[in-house]
Design a protein around this nucleic acid. Structure first.
Lengths: 223, 223
DNA sequence: GGGTTAAGTGGACTTGTGTCCGTTTATAAT
DNA sequence: ATTATAAACGGACACAAGTCCACTTAACCC
C-alpha cells in the first residue's frame, strides 16, 4: 500500500483504510485525517524501531507526528490499536503466504496433523518476530472485565487451527471425541504474547525448542 | 502484631512473616512496620473483596490503612507484590493439600498421567478461584525487558508438573524423548492469568470444558 | 463563493502507578 | 536514661495512558 514516509507527505489518494479494522459502509476519512493517520503510523514505526514500543509514549508519537494527543487518540483510541495497525500489513502478507502453502500441502495429501504442526511453527515464528509489538498490543483485547473484542489476527489463527484439527478428525488422524474448539485455543495459548515472553525470556528456552515441544504435543494427538 | 482492624482481627501472636517471600538471615521487621504490613494486608483484602482488585488503587489502600503511600510501597514495592502476598496463605494450604493427596495417589499406584491430569485440574480450579488477583499479580513477573523473577507459586506448579511428567516417562507411560521441562510449561500456559481470562471470558468456555480439553491433551501423551 | 455541519484538532486535565527525600521513631548499645 | 542509627514514614512529585471539550476546517450543497 505504499506507506508514506516520515516527514514529507505524498499527496496520493488516501490509502483505502487497509490498516484499520475497516467497517464497510462508512464514508472515508477526511483528507487531513488520512494524512495524519499515515504520518502517525510512519512516525510510530520509526520510534518503535528505535527504542522499542514500550519505551515510546503516546505523547512522544503525537509530538513527533506534529499532532495533538487528542488527534492521535481519535485515530487510535488505545495504544494497542496503534500497535495492531502497525502489524496489520505484515500480518496480511503472512496470512496470505500461509494460506497458499496450506493449499499446496492439502493438494499434496500432506497429513492434516503435519499441516497443523507446520502452521503452529509459522505462528510461533511470527509471534517471535513481533513479540514487543504483540506484548504492547495485548491489552487491547482483555481490558475490561466483561466480554472483550478479539483481535482479527488472533481470531484467524484460532480458526485455522480449528479447521485443521477438524480436518484431522475427519481424516481419522485424531480421535473424534476431541473438543476441537477448546483444544485449538489450548494449543495456541503458549503463543500468546505474555506466555511466549515467559517461555523465551523468563525461562529462556530457545524458540526451536519451544516449537519442538509444541510439535510433540500436536503429534501426540494422533490416534 | 495486634492487628487493628477493620473487620475484627484475632489478637494472635504475630504470624511469622509467612506472607512475604521471606529472606532468611535478615533481622525481623520493626514492630511498627509489621503492624502496618498486617493492617495493609487486612485492608487490602477487604477492599479487594468489595470492589475487585482492579478497581482498588494503591492510594485507596494507603488511605484506608492509615499510612502514607510511601509506607505502602515500602512494604509492597509493586501492586502485584501485594496481590501475591494476599494469595500466599491460601496458596500454601492449597499446596500442602495437593502434595498430600499426590502422596496418597502415588502410594495407591495411581498412574502418573492420571496424577498429572488431577493436578492440572486442581491448578485450574485454584487459578479460577483467584483469577482477579492473579490477573493483577501477573505484571510482577514479566515487567522489565530482561530476565525477570518468577513467582514462587508459578515455579512450584511448574516443578510439580515436570516431576510428574518425568515420573510418567520413567514408568513408561510417556515417550522418553519428550522434552519434560518445556512440555510442562506448555501444559501450564493456558492457566496463566491472561490466557485463562481469554478462555473463560472472551471465549466464554466453561471451566469444566477447559479442564476436559486439557485432560485430553495430557492423556494423549500416553505412548 | 458562501454557508452548513460533521469530522477533525490540540492541549489541558484526570487518574493511577511508582519514586524521592526530608523528617520521625523504634531499637539497642552505652 | 541517653544517644546513635538504621529503619520507617508520609506526602509531594514524576510520568504515562487515556478523556474532554472548545475551537477549527474540509467537504458537500446551493
Amino acid at each position: 500500500m505504499k506507506v508514506i514516509s516520515v516527514s514529507p507527505e505524498s499527496p496520493e489518494p488516501p490509502p483505502p483504510a487497509l490498516l484499520v479494522l475497516s467497517a464497510e459502509g462508512e464514508r472515508p476519512e477526511r483528507a487531513d485525517a488520512a494524512a495524519n493517520r499515515a504520518r502517525i503510523l510512519s512516525v510510530a514505526e520509526r520510534l518503535f524501531g528505535e527504542k522499542g514500543p514500550h519505551a515510546v509514549t503516546m505523547a512522544d508519537i503525537a509530538r513527533a507526528a506534529g499532532v495533538g494527543q487528542g488527534t492521535l487518540y481519535r485515530r487510535f483510541p488505545r495504544k494497542p490499536d496503534l500497535c495492531l495497525a502497525l502489524m496489520d500489513h505484515q500480518f496480511r502478507e503472512f496470512q496470505d503466504a500461509t494460506l497458499r502453502e496450506l493449499g499446496r500441502m492439502t493438494g499434496a495429501r500432506t497429513p492434516r496433523l503435519d499441516q497443523l504442526a507446520w502452521v503452529v511453527e509459522r505462528f510461533a515464528a511470527f509471534a517471535e518476530g513481533n513479540l514487543d509489538l504483540l506484548r504492547e498490543a495485548q491489552p487491547a483485547l482483555a481490558d475490561s472485565e466483561a466480554g472483550l473484542p478479539e483481535s482479527p489476527p488472533s481470531r484467524w489463527q484460532a480458526l485455522t487451527v480449528r479447521g485443521l484439527l477438524q480436518a484431522a478428525i475427519e481424516a481419522g488422524e485424531v480421535g473424534a471425541q476431541t473438543d476441537v474448539v477448546v483444544v485449538a485455543d489450548l494449543l495456541l495459548a503458549p503463543l500468546r504474547a505474555e506466555s511466549l515472553c515467559f517461555l523465551r525470556h523468563t525461562r529462556a528456552y530457545a524458540l526451536p525448542r519451544v516449537i519442538a515441544a509444541m510439535t510433540t504435543l500436536i503429534r501426540s494427538l494422533r490416534v
